[in-house]
C-alpha cells in the first residue's frame, strides 16, 4: 500500500466577516484507501497536536446520503469523479506529489461560516417556502400507496427526491444558480397526485424565495447536472420552468 505525500492549498477564514486566504499544508502518509475527509481528519489531528487551529469543514454521515460535505476540490465540486460526494471521494483519485486546492462553495447566498464550512440555510428557507405537502394527519390519513400513480411518474419523482441538498449545483454553476436544487424539490411533488393541490403556490413561492436569497440565474450551461452527486437531470429544471410559466399565467 503506497503512502502518498501531498501539498494541500486550503482556504482559511476565521469567521464570516474575516478576510480569508489559501494556506499551504504538506500532508504525509496519506493512504489511497482514505476518503478525502479522512485525509483532512489526519491533517486536523496533526494541526491540533501542533497547537494550531484545525480546519473547519462540514461532514456528517460519511456515506454519501446526508449532503453535509461540500468542498470545491481541484476546481470541481466534490472533486474529481462523478456521482459522488466528498466523503465518497477516495485518495486513490490523486497521485503522490499532487497539489490539491480546497475551497469552500462560492456563492453570495452561501456565506462562509469558517474556513471551508458555508451556511446553506438559504436552501432550508427555500424548502420552507413551499417544499412540502400539507397532509391532514388528524386520523383520516389516506395511505400513500392507495393512490394509483403511473410507474414512470413515480420513478421520475423519486429521481428528483434523491436530491440531498448539498449545494454542488450552486457551487459549480458559473452563475451560482440554485435552479437544479429548486427544480428537484418542485419536481418531486409536481409529478405526484399528493403534490398537485399546492403545485402552483409551491413553485411560485420557492422561486421567489430562491431569487430573494441572491442566487444567480440559470443560463443552461448544464454544469450542475454533471457535478450533481445524485445525477439530478436538467429535465427537472425544464419541468420547473413549465410549472412556473403556467402558474405565473394562471395565478389569481
Amino acid at each position: 500500500m503506497g503512502n502518498m505525500k501531498l501539498t494541500l492549498k486550503i482556504w482559511r477564514q476565521n469567521g464570516p466577516k474575516a478576510k480569508g486566504e489559501l494556506n499551504t499544508y504538506p500532508v504525509n502518509d496519506v493512504s489511497e484507501d482514505m476518503s478525502f475527509l479522512e485525509m483532512l481528519d489526519v491533517l486536523n489531528d496533526d494541526l491540533v497536536r501542533k497547537g494550531e487551529e484545525p480546519i473547519a469543514f462540514d461532514h456528517d454521515c460519511r456515506e454519501g446520503i446526508c449532503g453535509s460535505c461540500s468542498l470545491f476540490i481541484n476546481g470541481e465540486a466534490h472533486g474529481p469523479g462523478r456521482m459522488i460526494t466528498t466523503c465518497q471521494l477516495h485518495m486513490r483519485k490523486f497521485k503522490d506529489g499532487d497539489t490539491i486546492h480546497v475551497e469552500p462553495w462560492r456563492a453570495e447566498a452561501f456565506p462562509v461560516i469558517k474556513d471551508l464550512a458555508v451556511d446553506r440555510g438559504a436552501f432550508d428557507r427555500i424548502q420552507a417556502a413551499g417544499g412540502f405537502v400539507s397532509v391532514n394527519t388528524s386520523g383520516n390519513l389516506v395511505d400513500g400507496n392507495a393512490v394509483p400513480i403511473p410507474k414512470a411518474d413515480a420513478d421520475t419523482a423519486f429521481d428528483a427526491a434523491t436530491c440531498i441538498g448539498c449545494g454542488a449545483c450552486v457551487a459549480t454553476c458559473t452563475n451560482s444558480s440554485a435552479m437544479l436544487f429548486v427544480a428537484a424539490k418542485v419536481s418531486q411533488f409536481a409529478l405526484l397526485p399528493q403534490g398537485k393541490p399546492e403545485a402552483k403556490r409551491r413553485v411560485l413561492a420557492m422561486v421567489e424565495q430562491m431569487d430573494k436569497e441572491g442566487f444567480g440565474n440559470c443560463s443552461n450551461t448544464g454544469a450542475c447536472e454533471v457535478e450533481c452527486p445524485k445525477g439530478i437531470s436538467l429535465e427537472h429544471i425544464a419541468r420547473m420552468n413549465r410549472e412556473y410559466l403556467a402558474a405565473s399565467v394562471t395565478k389569481e
Binding site: 492549498k9 470545491f72 462560492r106 450551461t221 454544469a223 454533471v226 457535478e227
Partner: peptide
Amino acid sequence: KARPIKYAYEKANASS
C-alpha cells in the same frame, strides 16, 4: 453579484 468571491482554482471546462 451572485458570486462575489471567485474560485482561486476552477476547472470549469470539466462540466460545461
